[in-house]
Design a protein around this nucleic acid. Structure first.
Length: 423
RNA sequence: GGAGAGGUGUCUGAGUGGUCGAAAGAGCACGCCUGGAAAGUGUGUAUACUUCAAAAGGGUAUCGAGGGUUCGAAUCCCUCCCUCUCCGCCA
């Protein structure tokens, strides 16, 4: 959520930035400012009336104690109008604040100045490409066929137990999952992220805090009985650890990592591109999260991007880094890098990570602040990224590393898998 | 699931209708004291809003959340949420 004070002070710039995200409801900006004007004047009237009423109440108390009952009664008689006014103004204020909030949550975050204008994924900017794409023989198989051939993943069994998009990992397929999880967590800890294990269900307040709600309500599984949402990413519980928190300036940056399954309804996405591991309802992911000083958050973003790239390099996967264009960015993000690996058998790029700086968009909702050098509270910046999401890594690994002998496990993983080949 | 107790500031904890944004202690910060430290001592120590104000400061709101009673609510009433204890169930 954007800060109203910022919108007020930088109206033209806000409009300009929103245009980069192709945001159409530009009149919301002036509506927000008008409502805030109304809010302020109503608040002032309410405050003044309350002050009068408070003073009178105090005086009545004093008169009562002094035994001047008549005077007190006289004063009491006058309080009626104030009471009515306070009630009326209070209701008005609540209504205005609600309306303001409803409009405010419709405004996406402002994109960073480096974000390219654009509508579709094709307009994302390729920042860099790294690693050689393997040349596979004609007989190369896509990962879903490899998974069946080596008995690594049973999609049909998952359908029986739950439904499409909930695969069962078996044998070396299951072990590969655990190996990747442990490897990614170990690497994150080496980079200074402290591990947390968090709940897989969150309440409404947490969903709002990281702006999945109300924006992506339909994308989350919802447990009606208890009013809880299954997490679509560990970003939600991990970032919400810092909800309603005032950090000390010297505590920044806070760095956490965690592994969780992620649950996504992915309503409406079917077809050839979602075969196999390409898109699932449940998958495992290691998330890295930082709470940073506003002056440092873009440095931190680069550092997180490099961390993710390091993992991909270590796994020997060809990858590229995209700077998302305004139209392809998430609602709350100011700058997002997507990392994609080249899936040689499918001949396409697969998104395996997304690293974003939310600046103060989330922290404004979270009320996540720190005490700055002047001792004042200030909104911190939040960042997060996948490091990494497993399924497409597995897909690319299986496809790119297939040989006649079997599938070669990358060296860095062998201490974790304890086998070198899937055969 | 059944029965009971309770939610106050960074923490402990007082406060059952006015003088309460809230005693006291601890912690923390700064100062004094000290060769240095401890002890001692003094001061300070919530958040938000504010078309009041240059600032100091002032006003308003907040004692789990929301509503109500009252001239006046941390205190009384209602609803909800949460925590703890005992019983039941249980990895």
């Amino acid at each position: 959520m954007l800060q109203v004070s910022y919108i007020r002070d930088n109206r033209e710039q806000v409009l300009e930035r929103l245009a980069v995200k192709n945001f159409k409801q530009v009149n919301l900006v002036s509506e927000v400012i008008e409502l805030d004007d109304k809010r302020r004047s109503t608040q002032t009237s309410l405050d003044n009336t309350s002050a009068e009423a408070n003073a009178a109440a105090k005086q009545i108390g004093e008169l009562m104690r002094a035994g001047k009952k008549d005077e007190a009664e006289g004063l009491k008689a006058k309080t009626g109008t104030w009471k009515e006014d306070i009630k009326r103004l209070g209701d008005q204020l609540a209504a205005i604040e609600e309306e303001l909030y409803q409009k405010l949550v419709l405004l996406p975050n402002l994109p960073h100045s480096s974000v390219p204008k654009g509508l579709t994924p094709e307009e994302n900017e390729v920042v860099l490409e790294n690693g050689a794409k393997p040349n596979l023989p004609e007989s190369a198989l896509p990962h879903w066929e490899l998974a069946a051939k080596y008995s690594l993943i049973d999609f049909e069994l998952g359908v029986k137990i739950t439904g499409a998009g909930f695969p069962v990992y078996k044998n070396k397929g299951a072990k590969l999952q655990r190996a990747l999880i442990n490897y990614f967590i170990d690497e994150a800890e080496k980079a200074g992220y402290s591990e947390v294990m968090v709940p897989l269900m969150v309440n409404e307040a947490s969903g709002f805090g990281t702006s999945q709600l109300p924006d992506k309500e339909g994308q989350m599984y919802f447990v009606n009985e208890d009013n809880l949402y299954l997490i679509p990413t560990a970003e939600v519980p991990i970032t919400n650890m810092y909800r309603d928190v005032i950090l000390k300036g010297e505590d920044l940056p806070m760095k956490n990592c965690g592994h969780t399954p992620c649950f996504r309804r992915e309503a409406g996405s079917y077809g050839a591109h979602v075969r196999g591991l390409n898109r699932l309802h449940q998958f495992d992911k290691i998330e890295i999260v930082q709470v940073a000083h506003p002056d440092k958050s873009y440095e931190v973003l680069e550092q997180m991007s490099l961390h993710v790239q390091g993992l991909l390099q270590n796994l020997g996967l060809p990858y590229r880094v995209l700077r998302l264009c305004g139209g392809d960015m998430g609602f709350g993000s100011a700058l997002t890098y997507d990392m994609e690996t080249w899936s040689a058998a499918q001949q396409r790029w697969l998104e395996v990570s997304s690293v974003s700086n939310f600046e103060s968009f989330q922290s404004n909702r979270l009320k996540l602040r720190f005490r700055n050098a002047e001792g004042k509270t200030q909104l911190a910046h939040t960042l997060n990224g996948s490091a990494l999401a497993l399924p497409r890594i597995v897909a690319t690994l299986l496809e790119n590393n297939q040989t006649e002998k079997g599938i070669k496990i990358p060296e860095v993983l062998v201490p974790y898998t304890k086998f070198e080949w899937i055969d």
